[in-house]
């Protein structure tokens, strides 16, 4: 084990949603919207699926792809947008660029662009986040497991997803701490390799617990 253990401080990231005032009723207005909205809005729509309880992987796609799939019914562009993995993007800016490139290519291909009725429009939302101590910390593996089990879903979101994207960390907070403070490299590695792209936060927490139990 390496030197003195620095306790792991658990944080929550609680989010409230606001409407940006921008909406889309077709692929071209979706393109314009993605171009125009804030990075917070792109971040919101790329990650909202992690908060959606579901048991079918078909529903597990970012909000842009999901809307096109359900309301526009253009499957080829849906597939392309669904494959934009935010964890393979270095920044939200890069994510936006990828989305826009796919949409631009599709729109440039001369496809017929249907419009949806008013009640099926896409509303660009964004969230205001508050990051604050969850009120507990862990100094060893046993405490760490207990804290994970006790964590709110928003805490899992912060440590596994948000802090990486916001602060450009290469690895999630849990893996970094397990490796640097407890030398639990194997567990750290396995947590780092959980496929976030096809999971929701409840599943992610369950998988972390299984790994911490050494199963």
């Amino acid at each position: 084990m390496m030197g003195k253990v620095k306790p792991f401080q658990f944080y929550n990231e609680s989010r409230i949603t606001t409407f940006t005032g921008i909406k889309a009723n077709s692929l071209s207005s979706m393109y314009k919207g993605i171009h125009k909205v804030s990075e917070e809005s792109i971040f919101f729509h790329m990650h909202q699926c992690y908060f959606r309880p579901h048991f079918s992987p078909a529903d597990n796609m970012n909000d842009f792809a999901r809307w096109i799939w359900i309301h526009i019914g253009e499957y080829s562009i849906t597939e392309k947008l669904a494959m934009v993995d935010p964890f393979l993007c270095d920044s939200v800016r890069e994510c936006r660029k990828k989305l826009l490139t796919y949409l631009k290519d599709y729109l440039g291909g001369g496809a017929f662009i249907p419009r949806v009725s008013r009640d099926k429009e896409f509303y660009f939302l964004e969230s205001k986040s508050f990051i604050y101590p969850a009120g507990f910390e862990a100094k060893n593996l046993n405490e760490f497991r207990k804290c994970i089990q006790l964590s709110a879903i928003n805490s899992i979101f912060y440590h596994m997803i948000s802090s990486r994207m916001r602060y450009g960390h290469k690895i999630n907070d849990y893996s970094a701490w397990l490796s640097e403070n407890l030398s639990e490299n194997e567990k750290a590695e396995r947590i780092a390799h959980i496929n976030l792209f096809s999971s929701n936060l409840w599943d992610i927490r369950d998988r972390i617990l299984v790994i911490l139990d050494g199963k």
């Binding site: 929550n12 609680s14 508050f130 101590p133 969850a134 089990q149 006790l150 709110a152 879903i153 805490s155």
Partner: peptide
């Protein structure tokens, strides 16, 4: 779950 309720209690304190 305890975690979700603790989150609200913490927020209220904030």
């Amino acid at each position: 779950g305890k975690g979700e309720i603790n989150e609200i209690i913490s927020l209220a304190k904030e």
